[in-house]
Write a protein that binds this DNA or RNA. Sequence first.
DNA 1: ACAAAACATTATGGTTCCTAACTAGATGGA
DNA 2: TCCATCTAGTTAGGAACCATAATGTTTTGT
Lengths: 167, 167
Amino acid sequence: MLLLKELPTPKSLEKFAARYPDTDIQAISDFVSLLRASADISQALDRLLARYGLLQGRWWILVLLLRQDNLSSSPTDLAEKAGVTKASITGFIDSLEREGFVQRLPSADDRRKYQIRLTAAGLQKLDEIIPDYNRKIAGLMSALSLDERHDLLSLMKRLVANLEAMQ
Amino acid sequence: MLLLKELPTPKSLEKFAARYPDTDIQAISDFVSLLRASADISQALDRLLARYGLLQGRWWILVLLLRQDNLSSSPTDLAEKAGVTKASITGFIDSLEREGFVQRLPSADDRRKYQIRLTAAGLQKLDEIIPDYNRKIAGLMSALSLDERHDLLSLMKRLVANLEAMQ
DNA sequence: ACAAAACATTATGGTTCCTAACTAGATGGA
DNA sequence: TCCATCTAGTTAGGAACCATAATGTTTTGT
């Protein structure tokens, strides 16, 4: 994710507004700052996961599997929950299987289907990461009180709810 | 960006906390929700830009050039401002140059250097996108009052300031 | 003069993600 | 029953984004 280090300055915003007169400078400036802060947070997570040889793609697949009762799920289900195509899931599974973190198990009732199951090694990997992850995330979020976090999420969700206006 | 559609449910969080006892469930849940909202917003921008054949990488490079006085900058400067390596900038410039949006101009004083300049076509492309971009972003941000936006950014910045605690 | 530093590129590869085409298997109606 | 159709998953091919390492060229500093 390209993360703009250089936020717009008052001077560059003026210049921008001069060329594009109807600009709501404040809105643009706030939007860019928000994107930048979001990207910083996402990148920090990437850095944390990278210490364990993962990035967000494969991490979230492992987390989705951990949530399941029998630590397993189907590619189609994972695709829906992760918000990517089935073809993309195949790639993630290939990569995770190569490292021994998941297994493809044939389905008893339908021979087209597979169950993707977290292996003992995959669970062990999560056991290695998650205590650290928990500590780091709790540390991060402790910058805000519970009420402030609630406000933050509520404001973000109102923005997200208004995204359709962007289409 | 893999965007987890399926946020943790109370049940899956319980399960999580059972295996990892010191979990601050609320912190994890808030963090994941925040990432998800951020990703939604970033994706909406991608979709907007995609209608004009751009994605965020090349878009931000064009915006950085637009901010410059003579619509030009050096690869090194762009790399710093965009937060990527110079090698990555070379790729962006190659792609933008192929489409005629920027030009590489030799530098008068130093033959190692180039100036990357926005061409007339590049400026025209921005003129095509930015009025729509302005309208859409203003529409999005209008979901919140100025005070609320200020609060949102202030909360986000406090989180970002605490990111070092994650390392 | 010459070593060191700076600028940009090339080479190479990894990750994430897509669409389109395909195979294998299941299903449902004639 | 049989065949068209649907579903599950993979393969093929490619694009965007981004990094490290090595390289060539030019400038700078001593």
